[in-house]
Every structure is written in structure tokens, then in C-alpha cells.
Amino acid sequence: MAEVRVEHVTKTFGDFRALDDVTMDFPDGGFFGLLGPSGSGKTTLLRAIAGFLFLDAGRIRIGADWVEDVPVEKREIGMMFQSYALFPNMTVADNVGFGLRVRRVGAAEERRRIGEALDLVRLGDFGDRKPHQLSGGQRQRVALARAIVTNPRVLLLDEPLSALDKALRVDMQIELKRIQREIGITTIFVTHDQEEALALSDKIGILKDGRMIQAGPPREVYRNPIDIFAAEFLGEANILRRPGGSLPSGGVIHLPATATDASALAVRPENMTLSATEPAADGLSKMSGILAQRVFSGALGICLVERDGNVVKVIARDEDLPDIAEGDTVWISWKPEHTIVIPGG
């Protein structure tokens, strides 16, 4: 177990800047998500921490050691791959025991620790199976057991759940979190699924074009995104480019005190309320538009409201939505504290 620190890390492939001056702290024992669209450099950053690539510039520390010149096999890491990368020629037990065999811990100790690791992922009776005899979720657990059995200083997960179907993915999120808590290992994982990142992480880092845009606790980043990209990438956001104050077409937007001329405003769809008539309550920000589309998705209803050529999305419990036909005029309102100020605009 150890903390990880990435300092000013830069990596280029030819003309392509995969990582551009990335700095981030991963305190001991935390669960960290690296999030970004494809090509943002999140996997490159993970592989840099693992040691699969040499940096052009910058430093990486694991525990007390600067490791940027240490090859993968000496870094004492555990890594789980997107494809799981189980050795097809070995049994589950041999897969899990591979790292122990390399470390020559002895046959008895090896057997004991394989058993412990398989019990931890609840696959105690599967040691003699071959990987091809397992289901996707079971393979994933074997890969996890294999990654942690050597007591690595840090656990790296590359899109750990992306190969599973949705129901299984939610189960595995809970399972992953449980195991991580139980052994208290510093864990860094890469995902393009923002929900997964929010659900699992103590701290997330959002990457775009090789740069770390914003890092922090999920709630904080969700509530105070640093730019429009972060606001739209993490959850959904209606970006308001209009200045505050009274609107010519009726309605009003109360500007938060921190807003400047350069900043943009954003409101999360779930914080907006839809009504057929202008809401009377004082102090609300509100504006009108035409209901373009209403989508029923079970618990939630999603409404798209058109206004001056822009589309505003509102999400609410379906039964809370007023009975309005598509094409009618509607009013959208929200509390002033739900107006997010995006400093950079």
C-alpha cells in the first residue's frame, strides 16, 4: 500500500501528445477514477504509472520511491486488463499464483495465498477450472484476484467493467468497492463511464487531449465543474450562454455572486422543474420555451424544451411532470443556488 504521485508527466507518440504536463495525487488507500473520452490519455496515464512506457518528461512516485526509470516487473504493482488477460494455458489457481511463483514464495505459502485471494473474490471452488470454462464476471474476479495476490503497492484497473453487461456491472462495482475497502489498497482505474467513476471513486481526474482538466472528489467536481467540457462530460448540463437578469421573452435568471462577464452558466437537468404556467414563487430563475419532446424511461421522464434554437433538457420523476402536450409552451424554473458558474466559460 502506498500513495502515488504523478508530477508534470508528458508523453508523446510521434506528433501526438498523449500526456501533456499531467499532475495528480493519489493518497494512500483511496479509490481513484481517471475519466475522459477516448484518446484523452487516461489509459496512457495508467500505463505510465504501471511502467509500460517511458516518459518524455515528469516524475512518478509510488510510496517513497521515484519509479519513472523502474521497469514494470520491478514496480510491485497489480494490474487488471480490459480483456482480463488471463493465461488460457493455465488453471485459475495457476493464473492467480503466477506472480507468487515468480517471487518464489514456496509451494505451501503459494497455495495458502491463492486460496485466500480466490476466497476474497468468492471463487474458492474454481481453482481447477480453465479460464475458458468461466463466465465473464468470473473471469473478471480471477483477474482481480491475480492482481492483488502479491500484495502490490498499487492496484491499476484498465476499464475494469466495460466488458460486462449492465446488471453484472453494477454488482461488480459494489464487489470491487468491497474488496478495495477490505484490503485497503490504493486503486486507480480508468473508465469512460462517468456513472461508474462517480459511483466508485473517492477522487476523480478528468482528462482531455492529454491534459488533466480537473481533479477532485466526485461531488465537488460535479457541482463545480471548471469548464464546459467538465460540466458536460460529468453528468449532463444545460449551458446558458445568456447573461443573467431579465430576459426579453419573459423570465429571469438570477446571477450568482461569483459570476463574471467571462463565465458561463450551467444547470443540471435534474435540478430544473417544468410547469405549464409561469411559476409564481419569488426568487426562482425561470424561462419559457416550447416542449419539443417528452421521453418516458420508467422512473424518469426526460423533456426537451426548445428556446431560441437551443435545446434545454429537463429530467424529473415522470409522475412529477405536468401534463403538457408536445408543441405547447412550458416554463422551466430552478433555484438560484443550482446555477453553476463555470469560471473559464
Binding site: V72, G78, A85, G99
Partner: peptide, 27 residues
């Protein structure tokens, strides 16, 4: 042979000879 198998073996601390003997050669 999937390259990630070799990466996985390296991440577990295996040297080149071990990888050849236990993974690449058998597969």
C-alpha cells in the same frame, strides 16, 4: 497471442525468460 498477456505477466513481476517459458512458448 494477445499482447496484454505479456503485459499482464510483466505486471506480476515476470522477467523475459519466465514469460517465454511459461506463456509464449506453451501458447
Amino acid at each position: 497471442i494477445d499482447d496484454s498477456l505479456i503485459d499482464a505477466a510483466r505486471s506480476m513481476g515476470a522477467g523475459k525468460l519466465t514469460i517465454l517459458r511459461r506463456i509464449v512458448l506453451p501458447l
